[in-house]
Simulated scan of single mutants.
Amino acid sequence: MDSLLDSVVRLGYNSLRVPLALDHVEANPLVTAFNGGVAANKELDGARMLDALDLLVQKAADRSLLVLLDMHRLDAAVWPDAMGLWYNEAHCEGDLIAAWTMLARRYCGAWNVVGADLLNEPHGANWGSGVYGDDWRLAAERLGDAVLATCPRLLIFVEGVGNPPVTPIVGPNWAFWGGNLAAACTHPVRLNQPDRLVLSPHVYGPSVAAMDYFEDAAYPTNLEDIWEAHFGHTLSCADGAVVVGEFGGDAARADDLAFQRRLVGWMQARGVGGFVWALNPNSGDTKGVLADDWKTADKVKAEVYRRLSVSDVRITRGCV
């Protein structure tokens, strides 16, 4: 944990998005259940998952790193969830609310825990349908208000939905899961504390999934119009509170590297920050910001991502 956090600092990042699983938050299993967890971190001998999360938050704070908690899955061993919603056959909405309420209470006093990413990539949901069990926008309001009732200072990250069936359908240029915020201005998320809302789309290139627009003769110059339709337009209705929750890809592929360079340029131009997926190099189709030795930087990605400005967290420490 120490060496990886030191790498995050050395690479110039100021924050971590930490994925969690609802069933593990509920059961709080022993760390020994995970291969290598204690062998690599002796201080976790006999500890449970939330103890490990406490330690991560503490060590991140010692290094002036912010932490965004991300409810990444409902079930740790299942991805993708068949329903793609904030509930399934094993977990109701109330379970997710209870977990977030507990986490908000547990970390409200931790200055560097800045937000709750309510659910990763709710790709089976609609946005704006008005149906209780279908409209992710309405569910995000309920979940976000529950978090804020417990810890009013936290930021509430709300991702987009997926593709059909969604409202509205984003035409032939399908969005990535979590990237469809096309209706976020016409059907906005209304929290009891509006200034806590952050819209957080996910966007990837051809190393993650094939899209028709990656095959267009104009690629990659056609991407900005697609991003504006999917999520960029929300900058006009979200008071600038838009953070790309996931981006990245396999920079060894020329077509994906072109995508990443183009996206970083768009983010620079629009003043949008983001979280790179992922730190670890064994992340399948995206690889990582660390090279295969888990210590040094992927030099190509480092060159691309250093173009994004990074604020000094130490300036705001204690006032987040």
Rank of each mutant, 00 (worst) to 15 (best):
A60S: 10
S311E: 15
S7R: 13
A183G: 08
D312I: 06
C92H: 13
T101P: 00
A33T: 11
A175T: 08
G271F: 09
N126Q: 15
G37L: 07
F247Q: 00
V243K: 06
T316P: 07
W277C: 00
L119P: 09
G84H: 02
A21S: 08
P188M: 05
L263D: 00
G162S: 06
A125Q: 03
N192M: 11
I97P: 05
L223Q: 03
A47D: 06
H233M: 07
V304S: 00
T32K: 14
M211L: 12
I97M: 06
D212L: 15
N112T: 07
N163W: 15
L50S: 02
N112P: 13
V158L: 12
M71R: 03
H230C: 07
V244E: 03
L118S: 01
F259P: 00
L138Y: 11
P19V: 08
L279K: 03
P122W: 02
L143C: 04
V9L: 08
Y132H: 13
S129T: 11
L138K: 09
H187K: 13
R196P: 12
L53N: 01
L155P: 07
L30D: 10
W111Y: 13
E89T: 10
P122M: 01
G109L: 10
D239W: 12
L68G: 01
Y219H: 04
L16A: 05
A146D: 03
H24T: 10
Q268C: 09
A217C: 08
P164F: 15
D255H: 02
G160L: 06
G36N: 04
E43H: 12
A33F: 13
L4M: 12
L11Y: 11
V310G: 00
G271W: 04
L257K: 07
Y87V: 10
G12I: 03
M71G: 01
N35Q: 15
L11R: 08
M267G: 00
H202V: 02
E121F: 07
N282G: 15
L148C: 06
I97E: 06
I97C: 06
K301D: 10
A90P: 04
L155E: 06
L74Y: 04
F231K: 03
C92Y: 15
R190A: 11
L56T: 07
V243P: 07
A229E: 12
A61L: 15
M83G: 15
W136C: 05
A27W: 13
V244K: 06
A217K: 12
D250Y: 05
K59G: 05
G232K: 02
W294M: 13
G248A: 04
V161R: 08
V31K: 06
I315F: 14
D134C: 14
D293N: 05
N173L: 04
L308R: 00
A291P: 03
